[in-house]
Amino acid sequence: MTVRHRGALAAVAAGVAALTVATVVACGSRPAGNVGATEAADLAGAAPSPPAAGPSVPVTRGELPGGTRTVPPVRLVVPAIGVTATVDAVGINGATGEFEVPPSVDRIGWYRHGPGLEARAGSVVVAGHVDSATQGEGAFFRLRELDRGDTLTATGGDGVRREYRVVAREEYRKTKIPLDRYFARDGKPRLTLITCGGPFDAEARRYRDNIVVTAVPA
């Protein structure tokens, strides 16, 4: 699952390891349409940004509050899709410029250069693999099934469990996803979950789209 720096996501799910055609049949299906897109945009407090040209997108706009101790998510539970996953703090690979999603598909990554769970503004981003040819289904294999009203729990490094409610599920082509919105440090507090989806490009060995789920504090 790749995410470019200043493009730390244009392919947040593009590098989901090598995938087999058999796997595509199982997880390449589309969600039942987008839901909550307007509400997701409103949370960012600004009009949707035009798509970036290529994978380069701003992901470090804004400043984190000085003196604030960032609380990383360390565990995510999503009952509706059977997820209980460990969350690792990840950044950007200096050599490739990509978002370093954990190599084990049963774990997910939190973008440590953005807000933590204590933040009163901005998007807390977690991304995970949908599947792998060698490891099978990933933690976010069923992310596309989430719907408005579903709940999830993120436990922080401070031991506090925080409840969230899903307000939107959207699917974008990787070249059109408004990443500046989803990686923003401003706007209302929200949790953003990202994986890959849509049809699988066998030649490029990657999915065409990204699935984005937005949740707000319950």
Results as ranks from 00 to 15, higher is better:
Val90Ser: 10
Val90Arg: 15
Gly91Asn: 11
Gly91Tyr: 07
Gly91Ala: 12
Asn93Gly: 15
Asn93Arg: 14
Gly97Gln: 11
Gly97Ala: 06
Gly97Lys: 08
Phe99Leu: 15
Phe99Trp: 06
Pro102Val: 15
Pro102Ile: 14
Pro102Glu: 10
Pro102Phe: 03
Ser104Leu: 05
Asp106Phe: 00
Arg107Pro: 01
Ile108Arg: 05
Gly109Arg: 07
Trp110Ile: 09
Tyr111Pro: 00
Arg112Ser: 13
Pro115Tyr: 06
Gly116Ser: 09
Leu117Pro: 12
Leu117Asp: 02
Ala121Met: 01
Gly122Pro: 04
Gly122Tyr: 01
Val124Glu: 04
Val124Lys: 00
Val125Lys: 00
Ala127His: 04
His129Asn: 06
Asp131Asn: 12
Ser132Trp: 11
Ala133Tyr: 08
Thr134Gln: 06
Gln135Arg: 13
Glu137Arg: 04
Glu137Tyr: 07
Gly138Ile: 08
Phe141Gly: 01
Arg144Glu: 10
Arg144Phe: 10
Leu146Trp: 06
Leu146Tyr: 09
Asp147His: 12
Arg148Ile: 09
Gly149Val: 14
Asp150Ala: 14
Asp150Lys: 03
Thr151Met: 04
Thr151Val: 12
Leu152Val: 08
Thr153Trp: 12
Thr155Ser: 03
Gly156Trp: 04
Asp158Asn: 13
Asp158Tyr: 13
Val160Glu: 08
Arg162Ala: 03
Arg165Tyr: 03
Val166Asp: 07
Val167Asp: 03
Ala168Ser: 14
Glu170Cys: 09
Glu171His: 00
Glu171Gln: 13
Arg173His: 05
Lys174Trp: 07
Lys174Glu: 07
Lys176Ala: 07
Pro178Val: 10
Pro178Thr: 10
Leu179Val: 15
Asp180Gln: 11
Asp180Tyr: 02
Asp180Asn: 14
Arg181Trp: 09
Tyr182Pro: 06
Phe183Leu: 05
Ala184Trp: 01
Ala184Thr: 14
Arg185Ile: 12
Gly187Ala: 04
Arg190Leu: 02
Arg190Gln: 13
Arg190Cys: 04
Leu191Thr: 09
Leu191Pro: 01
Leu191Tyr: 09
Thr192Asp: 03
Gly197Ile: 09
Gly197Val: 08
Gly198Ser: 10
Gly198His: 07
Ala202Met: 02
Glu203Ser: 05
Glu203Asp: 12
Glu203Leu: 15
Ala204Leu: 09
Arg206Asp: 06
Tyr207Pro: 00
Asp209Met: 01
Asp209Ser: 06
Asp209Gly: 00
Ile211Arg: 02
Ile211Ala: 00
Val212Thr: 10
Ala215Trp: 04
Val216Asp: 04
Val216Lys: 00
Pro217Tyr: 12
